[in-house]
């Protein structure tokens, strides 16, 4: 099955073209972009990134841990210090806060890795359609299609302003 790589200079046409292709029933699509552009965010998938779920769960685990840990430890070996209660909620709020941030942040990193599919591939290997051009200033729209659709996809990529279309066999 061949893949076609359309190369563009701007994100807008890539997004338009990807949407058109999806409407036509092509599902094996990939976009390579040199930087983040809001236009491209929903080009392949309208759903918001699942990373937010990771942050939320991480943060909640953090806040529970941050209160539970010091409270339990203070009662496990009770020592009165400075006349303060064992469960000194105002001070444990600080621990609770810090752990919320710590766990939330680490969970966000985990979320990025899992949702973004990282680490990806083995050393130096990348997808067939990828090239160093996309870490310069060009955009790539990769379409996997059957042989008989090649000409149609090629025409569509070009109609949206692709300056060149390469065919990659996979």
């Amino acid at each position: 099955m061949p893949s076609l790589v359309g190369i563009y200079d701007a994100p807008g046409p890539v997004a338009d073209c990807a949407k058109k292709l999806r409407n036509r029933g092509f599902t094996d699509l990939e976009i390579y972009s040199p930087a983040a552009f809001p236009e491209l965010d929903d080009a392949l998938d309208e759903k918001p990134s699942r990373v937010r779920l990771y942050t939320l769960i991480g943060g909640l685990i953090g806040v529970v841990t941050g209160y539970a840990l010091p409270i339990w430890m203070s009662y496990d070996w009770p020592v009165v210090i400075g006349g303060k209660p064992f469960a000194s909620i105002p001070t444990y709020t600080i621990i609770g806060f810090e752990l919320t941030i710590l766990f939330g942040g680490l969970a966000t990193l985990l979320g990025l890795l899992i949702v973004g599919g990282l680490p990806y591939g083995s050393f130096g290997k990348a997808d067939k359609g990828y090239s160093a051009r996309f870490s310069a200033e060009e955009f790539g729209l990769v379409v996997g299609c059957s042989d008989r659709d090649v000409s149609e996809v090629d025409a569509m990529l070009k109609a949206h302003g692709s300056k060149e279309v390469n065919v990659v066999e996979a």
Binding site: A35, A36, A43, D45, V115, G116, S135
Partner: peptide, 12 residues
């Protein structure tokens, strides 16, 4: 980490 700059990666 094998970053390729796919739209899914950028979105996340």
């Amino acid at each position: 980490l094998g970053w390729q700059g796919t739209s899914t990666q950028w979105k996340s």
